[in-house]
């Protein structure tokens, strides 16, 4: 499982995260919501080793991975799927998948390992030899997730999987994440739009200005009006709503 304690980080001198605590348990989906600029992507990138935290601790299954390089974090079993369906555009679908599993060595049979992916996203099998840049945005997101899936991480971090996708493409992608979590993976999803992933989440945390303002089960937060208030910058901390 993933445990984050009192995490502080930023870009250069600009502080973004101000003391984040969270935990993601195997088999559960933790949804992190928050408005634009709340620091959600920074949080995922810091956990995954792309940004060195200024304070705090990141633990993967009890092992301290704070400040470890991203490629080593991935090898330790924590995989980040970056936002904007980033795959390797001038490589084929097959090669993108091969690279996803490459670090696990040669004892894995490619066919076996990608079979579950093709079952959920058959389009990837059909386009196996197409270059990734020729896929649609939704297909690229499927590929990005598939590339992470074949790595069989213990913890999956997923940055705005719905970003830039047509509405119809989002449900199968979320369903895939749900199934994936059910296999015992701890899944952390970041989304900006409140309702996109609320139905598949177990736990929800609302981030704003680099801190977690609200946290609870998905069921609790669904009914909580404060969620929208936080999003719209209205009426928190007893301040007047309007000037």
């Amino acid at each position: 499982m993933l445990r984050v304690a009192d995490l502080h980080a930023g870009y250069g001198r600009v502080p973004v995260l101000r003391g984040i605590d969270l935990a993601a348990r195997p088999g559960e989906i933790l949804l992190i919501l928050g408005p634009n600029g709340a620091g959600k992507s920074t949080l995922l990138r810091t956990i995954a080793g792309f940004i060195r935290p200024t304070a705090g601790r990141v633990e993967l299954d009890g092992r301290d991975i704070t400040g470890t390089a991203p490629e080593e974090v991935t090898r330790a079993g924590l995989r980040l799927v970056l936002d904007g369906h980033r795959v390797f555009p001038r490589l084929t679908v097959r090669d993108n998948l091969r690279l996803g599993v490459a670090f696990r060595g040669r004892q894995f049979d490619f066919g076996t390992i990608v079979a579950p992916v093709f079952e959920v996203f058959p389009i990837l099998r059909d386009k196996l030899h197409a270059q990734a840049r020729d896929l649609s945005g939704g297909q690229q997101q499927m590929l990005a997730l598939a590339q992470a899936f074949v790595a069989q991480p213990k913890v999956l971090l997923c940055d705005e999987p719905s970003l830039g996708l047509a509405q119809a493409l989002i449900p199968p992608i979320l369903a895939f994440l749900r199934r994936w979590a059910a296999q015992g993976t701890a899944v952390v999803i970041v989304e900006q739009q409140i309702e996109v992933a609320l139905d598949i989440a177990d736990q929800v945390a609302i981030m704003e200005r680099g801190a977690i303002q609200l946290a609870g089960t998905a069921a609790e937060l669904k009914r909580d009006k404060r969620v929208q208030e936080i999003y719209l910058g209205l009426g928190e901390r007893g301040e007047p709503l309007m000037p």
Binding site: E191, Q192, I194, E195, V196, Q228, Y231, L232, M242, P243
Partner: peptide
């Protein structure tokens, strides 16, 4: 500001709700 804050389209834009 008051008009914008009450505009449903704007609210939907920011919250996705």
């Amino acid at each position: 500001p008051a008009e914008i804050a009450d505009n449903p389209r704007v609210r939907a834009l920011f919250t996705g709700a």
